[in-house]
Design a protein around this nucleic acid. Structure first.
Lengths: 209, 209
DNA sequence: CACCTATTTGAACGGTGTCAAGATAATCTT
DNA sequence: AAGATTATCTTGACACCGTTCAAATAGGTG
């Protein structure tokens, strides 16, 4: 779309063969190896087996590469959330299933998750963040309406969805903190701890009636 | 304590005069000027008017400097929270007053706030994070018990406090997102938006009775 | 074939974190 | 008070980083 309209099948356009894709994969590999702060564009190029200047024909900037990585991450996250939302929801309710999947995704790909939100913070840089968020967001909103049994106003559903999103994001970033360790063992495990917190987070009716 | 036991009054020990303090101040200045990603140790030294190698006699690493900056930030945050917790709480309840102060602190010092949690994530690097968190954390817990009118178990109060902390942290990081803009104007302002979200976040009784 | 365009390389520039050695100034010992 | 000691700061250097630009290379087109 942007540059060469990469041929969709067996993409091996010129010298290397879909370097753009290879760079994205290399970036994710290096990312989870050395963490978000230690990642260098040169290391990504090294991992992909090309010269340090090669990436500049596929991404105008290091930032643009990171942006693409973040976008990929959001796509994967939404897949995981959709899977959790459509699974059978007998044990917990759907809302806390989604929240659990969210936190577990962040725990499984911590560096990628960090890059995702480092990108998302720069609004101008993510013009179509709406598109990505909306899918996850609407799932949460639907689950909230379902949990409230229809007796919730549109704006309250929206606020509750934002609250849930914020809380789960915070939990994703802080679930590893040392202060929570004793409580986790006390409750019998990581998952039980997360469910416990989520039970408090995802309340659907505001106080003050 | 660590090095020279800096004389408490008129601290101008050797050549420059309490360079450690000057470096911390310079770091905060540069931080809020160029953002957390763009901050360089050399720029901090430049701002303080010393050579690039000078900081290495007061901090073993760039990381150690950032850690000290983060610690300072947590101290300031706790001051702000304590002020909000002890103020008259007629308009909103104490819980949402604290949450509001938290988010506003993060909005006023965005780069410092980022450094704070970048440090806090590395648990090994913040051995006494407990000390700092506990003050803010116990305030939240007390406010939760107050809001629940005493009919809340210890573990539920703990979980609710964690939930509130996570949610407010998430809100602090995402309150600037573009998706929330229309809702903000619809609700009549930033503060009203924040109160609205916090009303959903800080519920004190979990579902499933 | 020659031509053109996209891709990749190589070398270079300024900036960065960090360290070793030397210079400088405050403190300690006598 | 004078010399020895120690802490502080500067200078210079190294490797690495992001980025650019001219040259080299290779696929597509006539």
């Amino acid at each position: 779309m942007t540059t060469t309209e990469t041929p969709l099948v067996d993409a091996k356009p010129y010298h290397h063969g879909d370097l753009r894709r290879a760079l994205l994969d290399a970036a994710e590999t290096v990312l989870e190896r050395v963490g978000p702060g230690g990642l260098s564009l040169r290391a990504v190029a090294r991992e992909a087996g090309v010269s340090p200047a090669a990436p500049y024909h596929h991404f105008k900037d290091k930032d643009e590469l990171m942006l693409a990585v973040g976008k990929m991450g959001f796509t994967k996250l939404n897949v995981a959330l959709a899977a959790a939302a459509t699974a059978r929801s007998d044990l917990g309710d759907r809302l806390s299933d989604i929240g659990l999947a969210y936190v577990e995704f962040a725990q499984d790909h911590p560096a990628t998750y960090r890059v995702m939100y480092d990108c998302a913070r720069r609004v101008d840089a993510m013009p179509d963040a709406d598109e990505h968020d909306k899918t996850g967001f609407s799932m949460v909103k639907d689950a909230i309406r379902e949990a409230a049994g229809g007796e919730i106003s549109e704006v309250d559903a929206h606020l509750a969805a934002i609250a849930a999103w914020c809380a789960v994001h915070g939990l994703a970033e802080m679930s590893g903190f040392a202060e929570f360790k004793t409580l986790k063992t006390e409750l019998g495990g990581e998952k039980e701890f997360l469910r416990g917190v989520l039970r408090h987070v995802m309340f659907t009716r505001p106080r003050h009636h």
